[in-house]
């Protein structure tokens, strides 16, 4: 029994059908806990005032926006190397979710930046990189939408995802080079010195877990829809032949 068993669409459908109620429940539970805790029961930051509450949306969304792309990269590689359809469809399913998180991070960042930096938008390296990431998501989604044959689409989007990843990384460094940042350092890191204070840390971790599960649930649901759509296409094709 290996992990590749679940690359079989039928097995994946059965497993995900069983898992979905649990992930939905956990998502709701964790998101509600993290956000309610963060919103109602944490103190204001001495410098940022109540805007610190935005962190519970901004940081998890930004993390997942990047992780979603990494997940797409991994599933694209799996498709190219082992040609499991579920993998390619999962990459397709993840893209709109990643795009949504990118937009959440950008919008909450702008709303936070207005009172804190005095501007909605600055051409800061991190902000700019996120804008570029949005463009990559848009291109990727548009390419999937433009190609009719599903296997061709899976192949081409996978190649685009690989090349795009390299250039996204390059852009990240280019942008760093191009302008010094306004954005603060990482909110979470292994180096305790850099971390946010403990009162904010626990609810933040809970809401990050909530966002991860939200991503997972959405990808499961969307992948199931994609698998059904493939089956429907196959059925219709057979009908035409008959």
């Amino acid at each position: 029994m290996s992990i590749w068993e679940y690359a079989n669409p039928k097995k994946f459908m059965a497993l995900s059908a069983g898992a979905l109620p649990w992930t939905v429940g956990l998502t709701v539970l964790l998101l509600a806990t993290g956000l309610v805790w963060g919103f109602f029961f944490t103190p204001d930051d001495y410098r940022q005032g109540s805007t610190v509450k935005i962190i519970y949306l901004h940081v998890p969304a930004a993390m997942m926006a990047i992780n979603a792309w990494i997940m797409m990269l991994v599933t694209s590689l799996i498709w190219i190397i082992r040609r499991h359809h579920v993998s390619a469809l999962a990459a397709k399913a993840a893209a709109p979710v990643g795009l949504t998180f990118t937009l959440v991070a950008l919008v909450t960042g702008a709303l936070w930046g207005q009172p804190m930096w005095g501007t909605w938008w600055a051409w800061d390296p991190r902000l700019t990189s996120f804008l570029i990431l949005t463009l990559f998501y848009l291109g990727y989604i548009a390419l999937w939408a433009a190609i009719e044959d599903p296997d061709t689409a899976a192949d081409l989007t996978s190649i685009l995802c690989l090349v795009g990843s390299v250039f996204a990384l390059l852009s990240r460094y280019a942008v760093n080079f191009w302008n010094q940042g306004l954005h603060q350092g990482a909110s979470l890191s292994l180096d305790k010195q850099e971390n946010v204070a403990d009162v904010f840390w626990l609810p933040l971790v809970v809401s990050i877990a909530g966002f991860i599960l939200l991503f997972f649930t959405m990808v499961l649901l969307r992948t199931r829809t994609e698998i059904r759509s493939r089956r429907l296409k196959a059925l219709l094709a057979r009908e035409r032949v008959a």
Partner: peptide
């Protein structure tokens, strides 16, 4: 152009 322009950024 949607695919290529982001790649032109660096």
């Amino acid at each position: 152009s949607l695919l290529v322009l982001p790649l032109y950024v660096p």
